[in-house]
Design a binder for these strands. Structure first.
Lengths: 259, 259
DNA sequence: GTTATAAATCACAATTATTCTGATTATTTT
DNA sequence: AAAATAATCAGAATAATTGTGATTTATAAC
């Protein structure tokens, strides 16, 4: 169903290894070789890749999981989480986009699913600061692509700038599509302060402001307060979002349910 | 010698085809099949790729070369021209960079060769608007990478913005490394106006301003005047540059010869 | 408009190149 | 010195490229 989930033998094994390391916290290579039913050599190669992507930490004797906060905000990790939900959200969100419009996308995997749907969509202007989105959209001749500059963040794989350094103030788009790390009692949160500033600036640039959020974000907080949900004109949720959350959000904004 | 030249069978054949189309101007697919000694189907697939990269134009019945000016300023074309010279220039230019410095690179293949040398160079801040440079430098942990935003240009594979839209005014770097399309009688030129504005803004941002130029650029003009060579504090040339050009440049700036 | 014809695309099978894996050997770390 | 990791390499698995023939599309003639 989900085309974004790689299903090669190696990707599958690496997922197994990652889950195992996450649960166990710290494991030896030999133990992983037993789990994955392959040679230690292969384990080492897989772990090198995972370590390179910043998902685990290798040390002499084995491998360990990273602190949760760092881990969960890393692009590579978010990339493989709940893709079905993200695709549902994207399919719902694209209903509000029409050829000729200008839109802004933040540096989230949720919104990346939306970018994938824009191929052959028609003429459209897309503004973003997310590198993977550039990769996808630079191949679409119909898409006028504008990049928000800034300092490259390896954990987010995007360009982050303090307001006034990126040129973002010069743009006004028809719709801006954002994601959030977590939401609790109608307030959205994110791990990092710089990202919050960037997202706030993006929010400001849109006429219509969409929040795309799957149920996994709900009921938690992160270090930095982003904005109250009422700052969004529209919120797109999955159909597995708790009823009480939906009702609460309906009081302050327009809610759309993706099925 | 040059690792940037691909040597797979397909790449080699496409180069042959491109050269043939360039020389002939307009050819049928059947004729190309004879030249490359392969099926017409393969020719079509190759031409689709070349057309996608903006190097040729397909039409029902065959394929034709693009107008020279558009063609020569396209990133993909420049990518495969005179790499040895560019690498020489880059090796000379890097002598003026030291760990801890901040530098700016424009969207030229010449300067890309310089970016490749920055791996394991030490801590350094690099500002650029060139996508291939991002690809290379995003993998270097020691490099703090800052992107200048703007509208994505498929022909240049970079982000172009009018001054004041990119945030470039906020930066001041130790050295800026630029390239030029052509040079004639001490004046540099470029095909496109937007690019000229972008390069001028970059020039303004550097304390020391380097022009990297191989001999193929000399003695021609392009549509838009960029700046006089005297606007650069330093010019790096290949050792095959005509003596009279070198002497002429020495009168207005510091000249370095790459061997 | 319609049709004839060449050209281009599509779908599939065969081939070719590339990547991946695990046994072995060498090197590093503690 | 012992264990762990990295390097090397041949065979296996995987992916890519290619050509054939059928199908669709575009051009030109009627």
């Amino acid at each position: 169903m989900s085309m974004t989930e790689p299903t090669t033998a190696r990707a599958l094994r690496q997922r197994t290894l990652l889950d195992y390391v996450l649960k166990a916290g710290s494991v030896t290579s030999a133990e992983l070789a037993t789990v994955a039913e392959c040679s230690i050599m292969t384990i080492h190669r897989d772990l090198d890749e995972l370590a390179n992507r910043g998902l685990v930490r290798k040390f002499h004797g084995g491998v360990s999981a990273l602190p949760t906060s760092v881990f969960e905000s890393s692009s590579a990790f978010r990339m493989r989480r709940g893709n079905e939900a993200k695709e549902k959200l994207a399919r719902e969100a694209i209903k509000f986009i029409e050829p000729g419009m200008s839109i802004m996308l933040d540096d989230s995997t949720t919104v990346l699913a939306l970018a994938r749907l824009l191929n052959d969509f028609g003429p459209i202007t897309v503004i973003t600061n997310y590198r993977p989105a550039i990769e996808i959209l630079s191949d679409c001749p119909d898409v006028r692509l504008i990049i928000l500059g800034g300092t490259y963040s390896r954990t987010h794989d995007s360009f982050i700038g303090v307001p006034n350094m990126t040129g973002i103030e010069n743009y006004a788009v028809d719709a801006v599509f954002l994601s959030t790390s977590t939401m609790h009692e109608g307030i959205t949160y994110h791990q990092e302060h710089d990202v919050v500033l960037m997202k706030r600036a993006m929010l400001h640039a849109g006429t219509r402001k969409f929040l795309l959020m799957d149920e996994s974000k709900i009921g938690k907080t992160s270090l930095n307060r982003f904005v109250p949900a009422s700052d969004f004109t529209d919120v797109v949720l999955t159909d597995e979002t708790p009823k009480e959350v939906i009702n609460q959000l309906r009081e302050v904004t327009t809610v759309h349910i993706a099925r």
